[in-house]
Write a protein that binds this DNA or RNA. Structure first.
Lengths: 349, 349
DNA sequence: CTGAAAGCGCTTACAG
DNA sequence: CTGAAAGCGCTTACAG
């Protein structure tokens, strides 16, 4: 019968609400004030143990779920982090997102994300939209950003981590990533050491970070007195496996004497390897292929792919950690985290 | 000087707020009430055009961003959709998520997502957490769900779409997907037609949908009088490329006379193909390999992969569409959408 | 350890 | 076309 009573009372909640159970519904049922129920939930030690148990039971029985909009309004905190990445349908960023997600979940933050599809104009709009949700912190991708985006971010006055890249451009607040220029340079150095001389580069998308990898790569070739333009082929089309095959085909048609190719990312390298297999080209004897990111297939493909392993998951995880530590007032050792990269030598180059 | 005035006024906003610009800050600046500013933003036609322009200018100048928590509280609507999927670091679900995301973005909804890592217990917790955000609608994965999850979903009283599968189990509200049983059966039928007789199955993760594909596959083999257990190898380890190679190796060690293998998904098939390449096994002459999902590499790998194409992006898009149409009160033609699948015959089987 | 009052920033009827 | 009043569901000082 207690339960019937409850049901009656619940029916009376304000006409604007959706009839959900509120804090004061719970309070009425056990005859205390709403504020005590609130305390039992948020600050259990401050409530009489016996009372607390009764409140907890009532909460369970009524299936009470706190309204976070109300809590947000009262505390001006949302327990939400916003994430702006170029695209989710890309293994690179789904790994990053997983790192962010695993950490935020464990620490009871929600994630609100948005994809720019590599457009700074989209990014502006998305930042505005996300900020309207008043996230407690925000993660954006890259150090290249419009003035308007920067202004919005600044005036939001919340912690910000710019991910993926480090060592170039201005960091607005915090950043975590690695140097794409150095990563590109290190692959060039390796290929030169291996004795390759007609070294090519194929790249898709050619966003800012791709360009920096290319610059690092080409400047190292130039320093060694090697050709930089002759074996270069790029497109702004988004990267995928099939495109890798086409770019390889096009480059070889133009410059048949190319002896090694650095593919701007592993997807492209897979496509290039598949195309070489079709052409019965021996890798690395006739042509060496190298990739970037060390995605899933790189260790298994034939020949296994020489590539640069990048700390994708860790970038996501660290970014979330930086944000949450900042929000909890914990000391931040460094506002910029260089997570580095690792050259992985396998059979393809 | 107008601007200095403004700054002064802004400083005075309540001590609990974070000093953000509010509706009434904008209102004060131009000497109207907050409600008029609200209307200018939400229902522009109802406001005097000249006034509206002034308000819009003030909004832009002050960089006013509406507080959605306040709006949510007042309207009991959040413009947010919750999404529960097994994992994001899996091309299958990142495609689905992209479909959801593209549609929701266009229609001004935010997405809140969570990964269960294929655990129904996690799912319960995540549903509770997401529901606390009071999403306007929710998408969950699969038709297999605990009673507690179901009860929470029901009492949340918001539209729900269960994605990925159709034609099995009870649909709580709406659903969109395809029949995994039929998809498995269709691949079995094809392999039998091609003349294979010692037909194997390798599967990882073995979640409910994988099991149903396997059941459809095996029951078709049984109907044809073929072996079902002899060439079967499954594990609950999460699926990845490398695992595909191992499973192929294990199965061939046990049953060297296997002449065709249906891999529970394309990742596994890639690994199996790579392993065959290493063993110099000719595909499909010595062993045929088939996959599931038609992921990116399937058309490019050597040999190109015979597989089942599944409408991943469309499932996500349709689920979001069903939810948003429901929320806008538009008529829903059918609460269950079978998007089908397509057998893609290539060179590997 | 518990509660009355006020406030978070917006929107919803209702007047005029 | 515009505004005063009340309310959404919670939490924050402040008393007691």
């Amino acid at each position: 019968m207690n339960r019937d009573n409850t049901a009656d009372k619940l029916g009376k909640s304000g006409s604007r609400s959706k009839g959900r159970v509120t804090l004061s519904d719970v309070a009425k049922v056990i005859g205390v004030s709403a504020i005590t129920v609130s305390r039992a939930l948020n600050d259990p030690e401050k409530v009489n143990p016996k009372l607390r148990v009764r409140i907890e039971q009532a909460v369970a029985e009524l299936n009470y779920v706190p309204n976070r909009a109300a809590r947000s309004l009262a505390t001006s905190t949302t327990q939400t982090l916003a994430v702006v990445i170029p695209t989710i349908s890309n293994t690179v960023f789904s790994n990053v997102l997983k790192g962010i997600y695993d950490y935020t979940t464990r620490h009871n933050y929600e994630v609100l994300f948005a994809s720019t599809y590599y457009s700074l104009q989209n990014e502006e709009k998305l930042i505005a939209k996300l900020l309207a949700q008043h996230p407690d912190g925000i993660i954006t991708t890259g150090l290249d950003i419009t003035e308007r985006s920067k202004a919005m971010l600044l005036s939001a006055n919340i912690p910000l981590v710019q991910i993926m890249e480090v060592g170039t451009g201005d960091v607005i607040d915090m950043s975590v990533g690695f140097s794409h220029f150095d990563a590109g340079a290190s692959m060039a150095k390796y290929l030169i050491e291996q004795g390759y001389r007609n070294i090519g580069f194929i790249g898709a998308q050619m966003d800012f970070r791709s360009q920096r990898r290319m610059q690092g790569f080409l400047s190292t070739l130039a320093d060694a007195g090697l050709e930089t333009d002759k074996y270069l082929l790029t497109t702004t089309t988004p990267s995928d496996i099939k495109l890798g095959g086409q770019l390889l085909a096009d480059l070889m048609a133009k410059q048949p004497d190319v002896d090694a190719i650095f593919c701007n990312n592993d997807d492209l390298a897979y496509g290039a390897i598949f195309e070489c297999q079709r052409r019965k080209l021996r890798i690395p004897e006739q042509i060496a292929i190298a990739g970037f990111n060390d995605l899933d297939a790189s260790a298994s493909i034939n020949p296994s792919l020489t590539t640069v392993k990048t700390p994708l998951y860790e970038i996501g995880r660290s970014a979330a950690e930086l944000l949450i530590n900042t929000l909890k007032g914990r000391p931040i050792l460094s506002k910029t985290l260089d997570l580095g990269f690792e050259l992985i030598v396998r059979d393809s180059a």
